[in-house]
Design a protein around this nucleic acid. Structure first.
Lengths: 197, 197
DNA sequence: CGTTCAAACGGACCACAGTCCGTTTTCATT
DNA sequence: AATGAAAACGGACTGTGGTCCGTTTGAACG
């Protein structure tokens, strides 16, 4: 649970101490409840009660349930991004571009499966939780560009990302009972075709 | 608004007359309210009131809000399926397989954009509303097979369908402001790469 | 310190999906 | 018709996300 940076912006109206205290309390409570009870059992009232805080405070801070879940997810998502940006190959730099691309899909796939419920709960904020999603988009797009793939790169990247969306994955794993390894292999195949490898 | 077939099953316990009457009333009310007020403004209480029926009745009949929306959507979705199965080329039979595949994406894309809100409302039933989704999956898979595309066909088909999912589309159109024509072109390009055309 | 006021607080309140269960209706059988 | 049981009915009730607004608190300034 990393303290959010008190990074001083231009004309920072400095966060009030009670606000900071409450925000931490809420985040802690939320994270604890999520791991203890599972995402679906975590209600806003419960979080508020657990944090010894009024419900209004939770909402002012995080805007909505989706916002709160996004905040809880933040840690894992940041860690993933760091693995991509500066972690060891083949996901991180140091491997060839094609190799990195083919490693990205399965990694993201497992990440999405692992945090499926949380991602879903955080997604409804307005469709896709923008920050995290656009990072993935940018990364794939960048790799495609380096591979000198022709075509509409932003949309090609989106096409590679969309089969990794949680609802798609969940349906394949939980309803159709396809093994994860097969999904990974299929994604790699897809990426090869799209990138012309 | 087609009457649902009173098709006689094995040991059909015949639908009661009041049940049939109420079901029609609810469907009518729901459809009317959806077109009049938009999906989001249609509440179950409203539908019940409009149909002069208790709320419990609506839920017994349709299970959930998602179920009701799926029923409302049914007409449009059936029509789409008929266009694919027996409509004019290039979507329907009579055109070459490749041509049909390349026509399917844009058609489905426009369908998803047109009924976006309804599809979303109907989807939360458990992720994807099974009947409609698996039709699309089967169709694409079938076309790929006829094109003698190698690989994991079920998953390749899913990969072609997933960029057409409503949330993806909505984000591209409403947030990124990409024109629909560009999305269509990108999908055609994607399909060409995947099918090796 | 005391004053001031914007910011933060908190819980009553609202709308909506979904459940429950006592009451009513239908219809097959007599 | 009368009867009885299964099916359907309906609306009060519950749980949850989200809002509102009168009250409290923090900290900047005198």
């Amino acid at each position: 649970m990393t303290h959010f940076s008190p990074l001083p912006m231009a004309d920072a109206p400095r966060e009030r101490s009670d606000a900071a205290r409450n925000r931490d309390a809420v985040m802690c409570a939320a994270a604890r409840l999520v791991t203890e009870l599972g995402v679906d059992a975590v209600t806003m009232d419960r979080v508020a009660a657990e944090a010894c805080v009024g419900k209004g405070t939770v909402f002012r801070r995080f805007g909505s349930r989706a916002g709160l879940m996004a905040a809880v997810l933040n840690g894992a998502e940041t860690e993933f991004q760091e693995r991509v940006i500066s972690g060891p190959p083949p996901l991180g730099p140091g491997a060839g571009t094609a190799e990195r691309l083919l490693a990205f899909g399965p990694a993201r796939l497992r990440q999405n499966l692992l945090h499926g419920a949380l991602l879903e709960a955080a997604a409804s904020i307005h469709g896709r939780s923008h920050a995290a999603y656009s990072f993935n988009l940018l990364h794939v797009r960048h790799l495609l560009a380096e591979l000198e793939v022709g075509g509409d790169l932003p949309l090609l990247a989106a096409a590679l990302l969309s089969p990794l969306e949680v609802p798609v994955l969940r349906s394949q794993v939980e309803v159709q009972h396809l093994p994860v390894e097969r999904l990974e292999a299929a994604w790699v195949d897809l990426a090869r075709r799209v990138a012309g490898l």
